[in-house]
Design a protein around this nucleic acid. Structure first.
Length: 881
RNA sequence: AGGACCAUAGCUCAGUUGGUUAGAGCGCUACCUUGACAUGGUAGAGGUCCCCAGUUCGAAUCUGGGUGGUCCUACCA
């Protein structure tokens, strides 16, 4: 069989992905097997694959492929999120480029454009996931805004309303002036930023004094309705109750006293703008102050400001400062650093705004969700996120769920009447709402036209939090949900622990009475080598698809996983992908080597003996590997698992095992060893498959002819068997000896194929009785003669392996000085070693208190060390002769 | 301001309930084109386990304090 010289990922990957899909390996239906379900964190429907997705989905694919190989009914449900703010913003921008303003469109017209956009771009990211090898059940692809998911959202909204857990409230909210919608607290990100603190004076009527306040928002002065000082502040006590004058607008406002004011900050006097600051609002309520909203929803100054109307808040701020300066009411300005809240989606500065919105009362939802995590019903990996989770859950605040957008599920609330008389009817449909309205009012003549449906949609996360239930159509149909739910593990970034993870847990208990998943695996942030976040602005985010092109999907999967323990940030470096593609090449070349061998029925006895041992040795090693890897999977130590496989394949399999059994040039290998080797390679393929699915499938098929349906992806994961410790030990000793010989060759410039002689003292390493070991050493160390007894040449180099001595006789004479130096260095090491052990053992308290086995171990260490010193000194003395 | 987590080789990280004069991968250095692979091989250098104190026969590991970092929450005129 002719095998290409180079591994060609591109061709291999598309071939096998199509094959798997065609065979239906990705799809899952309930059956008698144990279910293993994962729901994907749905990427934004208009998004493109970035490094975060690559990490996240590689992890999920590894877990799901491993489960499949373990014989479980693996089901990975893919889908996308409608991401109302982000998508609506994109559609608005697209329309603007076409010269269409959103404000000129009706809701229906806009939604038509949005759906078109979604049809066109909505599948891109899912196509890209295929390139990565993701083995999702594509037939189950869901969308948070499709019919099933939307119906669930409405059902849940109505259900919560009827339970009294959803209400409407007038509050200060986080307003995004670009998206022109309210946001939840979790969608606002705070960062320290430099701003200017302006000191402004207000004249106080009936006195010749002024009050100076410090503010970062001079433009909101136009909406001031009071000045507050601390009641115990002696500086201002006599001014409380007097009237101050707002600059420019010349409005008369009271000077009030309130304990909220911090006497230490600024001047100790605080301007109160109830419309534009949450604390000012509270103070306003306490003192019955007027609320003057000087801003429009888009962040420009409203007519109520009287000045700078129509100017953006930033421009208005500058104009205001200028105006104050001209009036002589600006005392000074200074730079001030404080936390500024920005919209997670649009990155604009959040504007506090008073408005009426829908809220979910979180208290009762949070209780079982908190308990589940604290009591270990749901386990977090890594565990440290439990603390963060607990802290948030114990201090949870109500969730603002309405959004002033069109792209999303419309709030199922209908209103009758205006103002004070307004009545609300929450129902799944307009008809039911109408029925309710007729009943409530006793007016059978009411028609649909009398009711107005709420204009808002619900928060995207209000559909996402139902995801583990709705992807299995869990509000309509029992079949799938009963089988797959709870899912096994959720894999997601820790940054959405509150936005998503916590809320899914709440929803799980609220509607299914059960956890949505057993485990949560938190991935870290993907950063660049300098630990900077990947971002478009910095241009440090590599093109995911180009990486796959350059290194192959397997190479990229290797690179992205090889240094990213759960919860830890991933410092992405392309060179890790390169290492992955080199690894593919290594595996590929092992295949080429094996497939290049001639197989014979009969080979020499030496060969068969040696190979028999090599096969048994490697079998033990493989079993050891398997039992270790089970624990690693259970603990989600995936990168460790990959790295140990890497070393197992590269070092143990390629560098040792294959070299051990490699037939001499021009000769053939015996059929038995050959078959065993093919079987080993197959098991290696299966073990590596979850990490690197493509090359393993290709190698699997190159190893031998297969019947249709005999694919690596659906093979059985090997089971750990017994480990022969004695064979591992004797081969390890042989490896040590072989390395010593190589080291000596290297140090003395002796060619790889120049034979050396080894003199064995006594029965060192049991070599007298172990033919296989003798052949092995002779072959790998290129030993001409292996001699027992007889005279040992005085210039032969002694080496210590396991307390036993052998002499390596090189075809050149070693410089006695260099040899002395080498031996002295080794002697020094052991002397130091023995000293520390002796010190320990001569300490009576150690001998008394330490466990017997530890003391015994130390005694053995001492004896071994002393023996080595004896031999080394002997050798040094011999050298002196 | 309160809290969480972290600090081990140049870099990224392992290091079980305290018990190898501290490990891996990458990188670095030297040598080697040999017949699967130079996308390779052989070897080497490189660490006061952040600092100080304590507990202990014994501390990278446990406790306290300090320093530095990351993050969360709340507030911030």
């Amino acid at each position: 069989m002719q095998i290409a010289k180079r591994y060609d990922p591109a061709a291999v990957e598309s071939k096998w992905y199509a094959h798997w899909e065609e065979r239906g390996y990705f799809s899952s239906q309930p059956d008698d097997r144990e279910p293993y379900a994962i729901v994907i964190p749905p990427p934004n429907v208009t998004g493109v694959l970035h490094m975060g997705h690559m990490l996240n989905n590689t992890v999920q694919d590894i877990l799901i492929r491993k489960a499949r190989l373990d014989g479980k009914n693996a089901c990975w449900v893919p889908g996308t999120d409608h991401a109302s703010i982000a998508t609506e913003a994109k559609v608005v921008r697209m329309l603007r480029e076409k010269g269409i303003k959103k404000s000129d469109l009706t809701r229906e017209e806009f939604l038509k454009y949005a759906w078109e956009w979604r049809e066109k771009y909505g599948g891109i990211i899912l196509q890209q996931l295929r390139k990565l090898g993701a083995s999702c059940d594509w037939e189950r692809t869901a969308f948070t805004m499709d019919e099933t998911r939307s119906a669930a959202v409405i059902e849940v909204f109505v259900d919560l309303y009827r339970k009294g857990k959803i209400y409407r409230g007038l509050r200060m909210v986080n307003w995004d002036p670009e998206a022109k919608t309210v946001l939840s607290n979790e969608e606002v990100l705070y960062n320290d930023e430099d701003t200017t603190l302006s000191y402004v004076t207000y004249p106080v009527e009936g006195t010749d004094r002024t009050l100076t306040v410090a503010t970062t928002r001079p433009e909101t002065i136009l909406g001031d309705t009071a000045i507050a000082v601390h009641p115990d502040d002696e500086r201002y006590g006599d001014l409380v109750g007097k009237t101050a004058m707002v600059p420019l607008v010349n409005r008369k406002i009271p000077v009030i006293a309130d304990r909220y004011v911090d006497r230490e900050f600024g001047t100790g006097a605080l301007k109160i703008t109830p419309a534009h600051d949450p604390n000012d609002y509270e103070i306003g309520v306490r003192h019955g102050l007027e609320v003057i909203d000087v801003l429009n929803p888009d962040g420009t100054m409203s007519p109520k400001a009287e000045f700078f109307v129509g100017e953006d808040r930033d421009d208005a701020r500058k104009l205001m400062v200028q105006a104050l300066q001209e009036l002589g009411q600006l005392v000074k300005t200074e730079t001030y650093r404080h936390a500024v809240g920005r919209s997670e989606r649009t990155n604009v500065i959040i504007e506090p705004r008073l408005s009426r919105q829908w809220y979910v009362d979180m208290q009762s939802l949070a209780e079982p969700a908190l308990k589940a995590v604290l009591e270990g019903e749901i386990t977090f990996f890594p565990a440290k996120y439990q603390n963060i989770y607990r802290h948030w859950m114990e201090n949870i605040r109500d969730w603002c769920i309405s959004r002033q957008l069109w792209w999303g599920q419309r709030v199922p609330a209908w209103y009758l009447g205006e103002g004070e008389d307004e009545q609300v009817f929450v129902a799944p449909t307009a008809d039911e709402a109408l029925e309710m309205a007729r009943e409530a009012t006793g007016q059978a003549s009411l028609t649909a036209a009398d009711l107005r449906q709420d204009e808002d949609v619900v928060d995207t996360w209000f559909s996402s939090w139902l995801w583990p239930i709705t992807v299995f159509n869990g509000f309509q149909d029992e079949k799938d949900i009963a089988y797959y739910y709870p899912t096994r593990v959720l894999v997601t970034g820790w940054d959405i622990i509150f936005l998503w993870v916590a809320r899914m847990i709440m929803a799980g208990y609220e509607w299914k009475g059960e956890r949505p998943f057993d485990h949560v695996y938190f991935t870290g942030m993907v950063r660049d080598k300098q630990r900077r976040k990947m971002s478009k602005q910095l241009g440090n985010s590599p093109d995911a698809l180009k990486l796959i092109q350059d290194f192959g999907a397997d190479g990229v999967r290797f690179g992205i996983l090889s240094s990213s323990p759960a919860g830890g940030d991933l410092l992405f470096d392309e060179s890790m992908c390169e290492q992955g593609s080199k690894f593919c090449n290594k595996i590929w070349n092992a295949l080429r080597l094996i497939k290049g061998w001639q197989v014979a029925k009969e080979t020499s006895e030496d060969e068969r003996t040696k190979n028999g041992m090599a096969v048994e040795w490697f079998r033990s090693l493989l079993h050891q590997m398997l039992s270790e890897s089970a624990e690693r999977f259970a603990q989600y130590k995936l990168s460790e698992g990959l790295m140990s496989l890497y070393s197992f394949i590269w070092n143990d399999f390629c560098s040792w095992y294959l070299e051990m059994i490699k037939p001499p040039y021009g000769e053939a290998i015996d059929a038995e060893t050959y078959e065993a080797t093919i079987a080993f390679f197959e098991q290696i393929c299966v073990m590596l498959h979850p990490y690197m699915p493509f090359i393993t499938e290709e190698v699997w098929h190159s190893l031998r002819e297969r019947e249709s349906g005999d694919d690596c992806m659906v093979a059985s994961y090997p089971v750990a068997g017994t480990v022969d410790a004695s064979i591992l030990a004797s081969v390890a000793a042989a490896q040590e000896l072989i390395s010593k010989v190589r080291e000596l060759r290297n140090d003395n410039n002796i060619g790889r194929n120049d034979p050396v002689t080894i003199h064995v003292e006594g029965n060192a390493l049991g070599l007298r009785d172990h033919a296989a070991l003798r052949v092995l050493i002779s072959r790998l160390a290129v030993v001409g003669e292996l001699e027992f007894g007889g005279d040992i040449p005085s210039d032969a180099t002694p080496v210590m392996i396991r307390k036993e001595r052998l002499f390596i006789d090189l075809p050149v004479t070693i410089d006695p000085e260099e040899e002395r130096a080498r031996l002295t260095k080794e002697l020094d090491y052991y002397k130091g070693f023995v000293t520390t052990v002796e010190r320990k053992l001569s300490n009576e308290r150690f001998v008394q208190n330490a466990p017997a086995e530890i003391v015994e171990k130390e005694r053995r260490k001492l004896a071994d060390g002393q023996e080595k010193i004896r031999i080394l000194e002997e050798s040094l003395a011999a050298l002196a002769d």
